[in-house]
Design a protein around this nucleic acid. Structure first.
Length: 124
DNA sequence: CAATTGACTTGAT
DNA sequence: TATCAAGCCAATT
């Protein structure tokens, strides 16, 4: 076996595991995947999400500053905010929220299990 | 194989 | 606190 998932696929697998009402910033996703400075790569991966990848809660991935960040698509940014608010996340007057309060902090073993299972499903 | 592109981050101003 | 410039990375061309 050892069907290695591409970085993008690993990103999708991890994002899929983010619990309802919790969030993860781009940099942390990269870090959990073993790439400490791959934040931009994570953004690139999510920007390439298509209708086929539905099921990936992309709105739970935010900036390290506690704000939504979708360039060139104000509508999508608004949609992201609405989805987050629907899950209980409260924004302040500056369109920001306390990241530490909603940040998902999975254990490393947990992350590995998630990736391993995703890789397995893909194989099957 | 080099250049380009982005839903990022951080440190300096 | 708000801006700006430089790093950093995977995927695409």
């Amino acid at each position: 076996m050892n069907t290695r998932m591409s970085f993008n696929e690993q990103v999708y697998a991890l994002v899929r595991a983010i619990p309802h009402g919790r969030v993860l910033n781009y940099g942390r996703v990269a870090m959990l995947l073993g790439v400490p400075h791959g934040a931009r790569a994570v953004g690139w991966a999510l920007s390439n999400l298509t209708a086929n990848d539905r099921g990936v809660p992309w709105w739970r991935v935010v900036s390290a500053q506690g704000r939504v960040s979708i360039k060139g698509a104000p509508e999508s940014a608004f949609e992201q905010r609405q989805r987050l608010e629907a899950e209980g996340i409260v924004f302040d007057a500056n369109d920001r929220f306390n990241l530490d309060r909603y940040l998902w902090t999975p254990d490393l073993p947990e992350v590995e299990a998630i990736l391993a299972q995703a890789a397995g499903d893909q194989h099957a």
